[in-house]
Design a protein around this nucleic acid. Structure first.
Lengths: 117, 117
DNA sequence: ATAATATATCAGTGAATAATGATATGACGC
DNA sequence: GCGTCATATCATTATTCACTGATATATTAT
């Protein structure tokens, strides 16, 4: 995207598009989706997420930090564990909407060679 | 994400996570969001999209190809123009859901330094 | 205090991908 | 046909970003 979008009007629309893109990027990664999917079943501590996603522990922690910063998950310390949970039912809803959309466009998405599988 | 996920079980969940991620990536770019946003107001031909998004013509065409392959937009030839449109109201709905979620998490998303602005 | 467990941090590396510029294709009017 | 407008293609370049490995911090138990 052009960087000289800092024009006279810096209108709210442009700002919101950047935010939207950033939020979408939060979801646009198999590892983070695996984490979010696991958390949709209820809160989990980190090592449980590591088990279920089969990702490395630092990798899970890195993604959790991203998700936490973005406000997509919340965390509570429980002794030496830290329990993570989905921060809002809207997130679950969004994931469901995507699945619904996917039923329509799954074939196309598979076929689209613009990014990696 | 690990590539050796081609295990014994190649279960549907894993496949769907990849699909979901791929679909999200379709939305996770400011240029494509700008194009989709413009099309939410009604069908447009390419040079109209170029005007409104201020992206270069090849760039718009590249993104349109991606969106078309993914099934997120559809196209109809009209003389020497090609008119593009949102392929399903579900897409508009999804964009609205994201905006709603964004109202909750906008601050966090801004603050998250894991990706570019 | 020491060890053990749970989680976080972060620099470095490799892979993915968005934008550009040049060029190709296709449709219309003359 | 020839020129022009509209769009598509594609290789190259530069950026972005996920993963790893090593290490740091925090909590609890002995």
């Amino acid at each position: 995207m052009n960087n000289d979008m800092t024009q006279i009007v810096t209108d709210r629309k442009t700002a919101t598009i950047e935010q939207r893109a950033k939020l979408f990027r939060g979801f646009a990664d198999p590892s983070r989706l695996a984490i979010l999917g696991a958390l949709c079943g209820g809160p989990l501590v980190v090592h449980e997420l590591v088990e279920r996603t089969e990702l490395s522990q630092p990798n899970v922690s890195n993604h959790l930090r991203c998700l936490l910063d973005c406000g997509l998950v919340a965390s509570d310390r429980d002794g030496r564990f830290i329990r993570y949970r989905i921060s809002s039912p809207r997130i679950t809803a969004l994931l469901n909407d995507v699945d619904a959309l996917l039923e329509l466009v799954a074939e196309g998405v598979e076929a689209c060679g613009n990014y990696r599988e």
